[in-house]
């Protein structure tokens, strides 16, 4: 389509007079990353010209979030690539604050920057206002980072070379009850009752749409999360290759330990 280079295709953040963003002759900004030895290719395509940003996180591990009136459940598949790998060192669910947790899919190293920002934002809020930050506010804070890539102008702070290659499910409770938010590399965030991201997300999302209901208990949500992960996983699901966490009003964020996880798996 755009075979000749124009003056507006040199930077990712330079608009043409028609209001379009060009780079490399297409209207898409594409980045390809590798994760681990297995050459897991990951394409982030921000199609900025269509109001909405489409993001293809093709091969992140499957991550599921389910909201219930009692709390939110997060579940991830931990791909144990080698029998010599210590599966407990794969960390894909982390705490942001006592009332906030986060599960990730994609380039998990990129999530460090975002989670660090989320934690600092949450602590600063508690320090300044003597109250826990709202789930939506912390999500917004994380998304504010998303588009700080490209080329920086002279005298400006250095920017990131590429967009974040990770999508997050942010779970938490606040005065509006338990909530689940999904953020993607474009910086868009949306609230969901149940959401699946990563490689198995299509099948998982269809299953969630089928099985999720408004009066689900926390236990039902835990079982549903595991069942969905089991369906989309290649290996046999056990307490070493999945991780479950929950955020409830009374106990805040908790990662389920092996015993608790085993009891859910047995009940499944």
């Amino acid at each position: 389509m755009f075979l000749t280079r124009s003056e507006y295709d040199r930077g990712v953040n330079t608009f043409s007079p028609e209001g379009r963003l060009f780079q490399g002759g297409t209207s898409r900004i594409c980045y390809r990353g590798n994760q681990g030895k297995r050459e897991i290719a990951l394409d982030i395509c921000l199609n900025i010209n269509d109001g909405e940003c489409f993001v293809f996180l093709q091969l992140g591990s499957t991550t599921v979030g389910v909201r219930t009136p009692e709390g939110v459940v997060l579940g991830v598949e931990k791909r144990v690539q080698s029998p010599l790998l210590e599966s407990s060192t794969i960390e894909k669910i982390v705490e942001i604050d006592t009332h906030l947790g986060c599960a990730m899919s994609g380039l998990t190293a990129d999530a460090r920057t975002m989670i660090d920002h989320a934690r600092v934002t949450a602590q600063n809020h508690a320090f300044t206002y003597d109250e826990p930050i709202k789930v939506e506010s912390v999500t917004q804070a994380v998304c504010d980072l998303a588009l700080r890539f490209g080329e920086s102008v002279h005298d400006e702070d250095a920017m990131m070379s590429r967009p974040f290659g990770v999508a997050l499910l942010i779970a938490g409770t606040d005065e509006n009850g338990p909530q689940l938010f999904h953020t993607d590399p474009s910086g868009t965030f949306m609230r969901y009752d149940a959401k699946a991201i990563g490689s198995g997300s299509e099948a998982a999302q269809a299953e969630l749409q089928d099985k999720w209901h408004t009066r689900m208990t926390l236990r039902e949500a835990q079982i549903l999360t595991l069942r969905i992960l089991k369906q989309v996983m290649e290996e046999k699901l056990d307490q070493h290759n999945v991780q479950l966490a929950q955020v409830t009003k009374d106990n805040g964020f908790q990662i389920l330990n092996e015993t608790e996880l085993r009891s859910v798996i047995e009940e499944m």
């Binding site: 300044t128 206002y129 109250e131 709202k134 506010s137």
Partner: peptide, 21 residues
């Protein structure tokens, strides 16, 4: 600013803490 960022009025005890800071 708080109203814009958090879509609600600041609670009284939050105002008290803000004044301290």
């Amino acid at each position: 600013w708080y109203r814009h960022a958090h879509a609600k009025d600041m609670p009284l005890r939050a105002i008290a803490r803000l004044i301290q800071t």
